[in-house]
């Protein structure tokens, strides 16, 4: 847990009930139950969770799109439920489904949105930076997923916001768009923008986020920097740091003889080995010394720490929901 320094967003014990019409059994459904988080200026804060975990609902409560049932939200020091145009002008929002009119063309649409602000960003720079100039004559309806996402990001940024909300920013992005979008997001963070994004992709969080909240069933289940979650988070749970060593070498080697039998050693197929468990530098030293003594040079060698995905699955369960 950390304490806020200059938070752009503080959420404290958020509760959101929906229904009864929206739920299946005709009862009120609690989609967010007591979630707390904050986001700093100049940082990327990620809400990581499976579909239906309550990420989008949390974001929409913070944006003033949904009224919360309980708890406290402060966005740039104001309550989003009662704040007006001046708060909205300082906050950029990229919705999950884009929210762009299908009949519009990119440039007139961006120019229209820019008109809502006293001092918008220069259109040309943004358009060029996000590569929108390559499809500026195409109607929104005919854009690819990646093009739509880039246009949505431009629409969220045109007002030069202090806070940026991105709901599943990499959904539908081709690798090229992903590169463009991720680079810009990182640059905006470095320029001091407070960025809050949701994702169900560990990769995104691992690559972008300065701080991650893992959310499940509308609750916080873990939080920390990516490094925290990968190491300390795991140690805190069961006191070990597990790694797996993969290598290819001649078939039929007795690896246990070299490094002991406290690790899980498997020859997955002839000549392909994996050694999993609490690997220490001593293990590695023993193994390489053994190889040196026998004149064995492995054809490949790879060491993997736990991925954020492992952490996420450990915490939120491996059940399909």
């Amino acid at each position: 847990m950390r304490s806020p320094e200059s938070p752009v967003l503080t959420i404290d014990g958020l509760i959101k009930d929906v229904g009864p019409l929206a739920s299946l059994d005709g009862k009120m459904l609690r989609v967010v139950s007591g979630l707390s988080m904050f986001a700093e200026r100049g940082q990327i804060t990620a809400l990581l969770g499976a579909n239906g975990a309550g990420k989008t609902t949390t974001l929409e409560c913070a944006q003033g799109l949904q009224k919360r049932t309980g708890g406290r939200i402060e966005l740039l020091g104001q309550d989003p439920d009662t704040a007006g145009a001046s708060l909205r002008s300082r906050v950029g929002v990229m919705l999950q489904d884009g929210g762009l009119p299908p009949s519009a063309r990119p440039i007139p649409l961006l120019r229209h949105i820019a008109g809502m602000y006293q001092s918008p960003l220069p259109l040309d720079g943004l358009v060029e930076r996000l590569g929108i100039d390559t499809f500026s004559r195409t109607g929104v309806r005919r854009l690819s997923g990646g093009q739509k996402q880039r246009l949505s990001l431009a629409a969220a940024l045109i007002g030069n916001p202090e806070v940026l909300f991105l709901d599943e920013p990499s959904a539908g992005l081709d690798p090229q768009s992903r590169q463009i979008v991720f680079e810009l997001i990182a640059e905006l963070r470095d320029a001091g923008m407070g960025i809050i994004l949701t994702t169900h992709l560990m990769d995104d969080a691992q690559r972008l986020a300065d701080y991650v909240y893992i959310i499940d069933a509308g609750r916080n289940v873990a939080e920390g920097t990516v490094a925290d979650l990968l190491s300390h988070g795991h140690e805190a749970m069961d006191g070990v740091t597990e790694r797996t060593l993969f290598f290819d070498a001649p078939a039929g080697l007795d690896i246990a003889a070299a490094i002991g039998d406290d690790l899980t050693i498997t020859e997955t197929r002839a000549g392909s080995y994996s050694v999993a468990g609490t690997l220490t530098p001593q293990h590695l030293a023993k193994l390489t010394a053994w190889w040196a003594g026998k004149g064995i040079m492995p054809a490949s060698l790879r060491l993997e720490a736990r991925s954020l995905e492992d952490v996420f699955l450990d915490i939120s369960g491996r059940d399909i929901r």
Binding site: A85, S86, R88, S89, R90, G115, M116, Y117, Q118, S119, L121, P122, D124, G125, L126, E128, R129, L130, L157, N160, P161, E162, L184, E187, L188, A191, G192, M193
Partner: peptide, 21 residues
Amino acid sequence: MTSATPTLTTPHAGPAPLLRR
């Protein structure tokens, strides 16, 4: 490209007037 990177002026210039919007 710097033009897309906000300069984060404080205070933020704010919204256009209601009537214009």
